[in-house]
Design a protein around this nucleic acid. Structure first.
Lengths: 262, 262
DNA sequence: CCCTGTGAAATTGTTCACAGCA
DNA sequence: TGCTGTGAACAATTTCACAGGG
């Protein structure tokens, strides 16, 4: 992902599959809920249901962490909460800076899920001088001139970018230069970072587009596909006439359910 | 994903791999940028770099859509923008409702990426009567009592949930009952929906936890793993003594780099 | 006998490498 | 000659199904 950074070259460390890592927080949340309800143990079936996955997958995932269950019984909730937390590194404190305190940055600053799981908002940073000193979610906003100093002083290694797309790469570069090695990017841009820096992206518009794709499919299945099969293709194909693409393989409707609107 | 809904039972439709669908918006964004700069054509190499993927993957992805490139030349930017937009269903208008107008909901309402790509914010809905009528991002907030009416009148099929976790399932149920078939969920809960309804989740805290995992790994590689290998496990393991898990397989440090702190 | 842990099979996704067209 | 399109090799992930401990 990101741009640099292949996978995890040498040092495959322990080798917990990435897909499993991505689900651990899900399990942890479900377990936390059970813990609050003082449920002592869960079966893989129950926990899987609560986390929205299937039980075989859950058991396989847990098998990468070790044998933490009891056959015939299930998993001890408290113990598992601890093990997963430790595996995820949540038993330690992670100071985080949020850069770009617009609506989104403010929402993130006030998001309970941050504080609850070992993450501490060390600083809110914004380039607008008018924001400086203004408290957001109880934390005073600092000016971006001090970014490097703040990161160094607090030993911040995780940065959240909630700025406009235009400045995201510049902010990213400064964060990385100052020592940040993990970035959560909300700006709709591809960030390029040196090897060793992790970037995760959250992109609202992409998620919606994926939904639209499936939504369109649903509509096309019920009826016989309609919704403007092709109003008017903006530019014609590359060079030559449309011949190639039209007959070449798929084209606008290669093998859709095909019913022909009218 | 979600809770119900297996994969896409019968009607495999055209069969564009899910992983490819998830990348199409990425390509589209890169292409749009090129289009704005009036670049006429791109090679798979260039486009891949702009989208942050490798070129073989990009070509393979495009091959599922059809043969839209020209050998020896590359892809026509405008034409490809159109083809991908159509494939994603962005050539039609998608009215969207956002439920829960807190900081996050407001950020979403004002997010440019929504309006720009065929998505139209049809309504903002909140349960707080004090919010009703108040304009957010230029759109007046409506009360959740009218949710069903709004959805029916505007023919909304995509809903965004930005409410507190506690009410997310209830909101989801109402949306689905009213006819919404795609949901983008920002609340930290697993939503359960009937078959045929798609749910995508965006979870800030999960992303951070994944970053923390990798961050921890990095720290553990440089030094010889430290950071409190296990301060004090909260509850002991299930029943019996720790024997099983400790010697059984992995336990707290099964095969970590192992250097022993002190 | 219930429920975990896990090999092995099935599926999905990625990368390679090159044939072939413009 | 340059770059797409794609079979085939490879890798990751999911699912099955069942051995085996409590």
């Amino acid at each position: 992902m990101a741009t640099g950074r292949t996978h995890r070259p040498a040092t495959r460390s322990r080798g917990i599959p990435e897909a499993t890592v991505a689900r651990l927080p899900l399990y942890l949340r479900a377990l936390t809920t059970l813990s609050e309800r003082s449920v002592p143990t869960v079966s893989s079936e129950e926990l899987a249901a609560a986390a929205g996955v299937n039980s075989a997958k859950l058991r396989k995932d847990f098998s990468y962490l070790g044998s933490y269950g009891t056959r015939g019984v299930g998993y001890d909730v408290e113990y598992l909460v601890y093990q997963i937390s430790r595996e995820l590194g949540l038993t330690q404190d992670w100071p985080v800076v949020i850069v770009g305190i617009g609506n989104l940055g403010a929402a993130l600053a006030g998001y309970g899920g941050f504080a609850s799981r070992g993450f501490r908002v060390a600083a809110l940073i914004d380039a607008d001088p008018a924001m400086t000193g203004k408290p957001v979610a109880g934390i005073p906003v600092q000016h971006s001139d001090d970014l490097e100093k703040i990161i160094a002083e607090d030993g911040v290694s995780i940065g959240v970018i909630a700025t406009p797309a235009g400045v995201a790469q510049a902010v990213c570069d400064r964060l990385v230069a100052a020592g940040v090695t993990s970035i959560l990017n909300f700006a709709p841009t591809v960030l390029s970072v040196p090897d060793g820096v992790d970037v995760r992206k959250v992109d609202l518009s992409i998620e919606l587009q994926i939904l639209a794709f499936h939504e369109q499919r649903k509509a096309g299945e019920e009826l016989g596909e309609e919704a403007a099969p092709q109003a008017a293709a903006p530019a014609a194909p590359p060079a030559a006439t449309r011949t190639t693409a039209e007959g070449g393989r798929k084209g606008p409707d290669g093998d859709v359910p095909a019913v022909m609107p009218a």
